[in-house]
Design a protein around this nucleic acid. Sequence first.
DNA 1: ATGTCGATACGCTATCGA
Length: 256
Amino acid sequence: MIIATYNVNGVNGRLPVLLRWLQEKQPDVVCLQELKAPQEKFPEKEINDAGYHAVWHGQKSWNGVAILSRGSEPQEVRRSLPGNDEDDQSRYIEAIVDGILIGCLYLPNGNPSPGPKFDYKLSWFDRLHKHADYLLKENVPVVLAGDYNAIPTGFDVYKPERWVDDALFRPETRAAYKSLVDQGWTDALRHLYPDEVIYTFWDYFRKAYDRNAGLRIDHFLLSPLVLERLVAAGVDKEVRGWEKTSDHAPVWIELN
DNA sequence: ATGTCGATACGCTATCGA
């Protein structure tokens, strides 16, 4: 079983790339972020025609998350993160697929920092902590996948000294990511490849992909019952080199 | 400081967020 996460940066503008990748990869479950489409403009028909059921939470212009499944229909559990009824940004959706609870998240970018956007990021992280802790205590198989907008360590960015003041790498962000993992989660890619340089995002600016000037910000956090099924993981890096592509590449795990 | 995308609107050019 292959579960993937892909920040598409506009699901409609990215549709040809997304459909090509789905066809080639045939993942069983896909978490999408940055749909940049209102609820009614999600390309449901094209996704269905590609063989996938979908649940999604759209938003005009920005954000938006979805969970696709090739076999059974995803059973939606929630479409927002608990803890703030006034938060209307579409950044979290949760569904059960084949007995695994899938949380698809798009954590706030947080730039410029410091400032209100960074405060929002940290408060969102705090809500994620609480919800993730609740999920762990349920003792069910859980996958928290998505764009965390967090560079875990200096090893996960091509030139850490250039990112020290960025919201993706500030000490508060790294500390929030670490304390989340320390609840009892496993960062799947780092677990399987402790010594490899792994990137999932390359800026559109300055030929970042050609220079491999990347960041690792799209992550899979696994609960213990999923970890014991983990057999492989990777980044479909070549997709980042396609025409009209996203600035993120798809990331995946394989479970037995 | 720069650069490049996608989506949007008092829409063919500019702005915002990333």
